[in-house]
């Protein structure tokens, strides 16, 4: 990827990531998160990981972030009036973040310069599938099990049990159960 294109997406990613953290309204944060994820997936595609870049957009932007949106709606979160928070926590938090950033930067700036030219078929679906279904097959099956457990667990935790609430609104509750399952996409 050319440096100019990289710079564009890098700036987009950083600015929108700051947006996620700084926006008062959760929906605006969410939109900033979408922009961050799209910028990152563009960067991945630029690195030659074409399939995984598009998969990132499909899974995160198309499914996970939509569920965030649903939860925001379900909780009816409006603009935050401003968070009280402890000043001390913020101060030490900022300090810790600065220290972490400095460390990561010091560590990464010395990384190898200039990627070698990508071999033919690098990042293609064939190559990826070959690795996943041969070398990482057990891990792959384990993640499918993890997803199943997560779906069942999410429905069990978020469900309104009959004892809590004698009458539950049919449409809302069922649509919500469906959403959990949408996670599996």
């Amino acid at each position: 990827m050319e440096v100019g294109v990289f710079a564009f997406f890098a700036v987009l990613a950083v600015v929108s990531a700051l947006g996620v953290v700084l926006q008062r309204s959760p929906v605006h944060s969410l939109l900033a998160l979408v922009a961050t994820l799209l910028a990152i997936s563009a960067l991945l595609i630029g690195l030659g990981a074409v399939a995984i870049g598009f998969l990132l957009a499909i899974v995160y932007v198309g499914a996970i972030v939509v569920v965030f949106l649903f939860v925001i709606w379900l909780l009816n979160l409006q603009r935050d009036p401003g968070e009280p928070g402890h000043l001390a926590a913020k101060f030490f938090g900022a300090f810790a973040v600065a220290a972490l950033t400095a460390e990561l930067f010091a560590f990464f700036v010395r990384a190898p310069v200039g990627p070698p030219p990508a071999p033919a078929g690098y990042g293609s679906v064939d190559r990826l599938a070959d690795l996943i279904f041969r070398d990482y097959l057990v891990a792959f099956e384990a993640t499918s099990l993890l997803l199943l457990v997560a779906v069942v667990g999410a429905v069990a935790v978020a469900r309104r049990w009959p004892a809590d609430q004698p009458r539950r609104s049919g449409a809302g509750a069922s649509a919500h159960g469906e959403l959990r399952r949408a996670e599996r996409a």
Partner: peptide, 8 residues
């Protein structure tokens, strides 16, 4: 991927 963005 692009169709997924259309939801928003």
């Amino acid at each position: 991927a692009v169709l997924g963005i259309g939801i928003y």
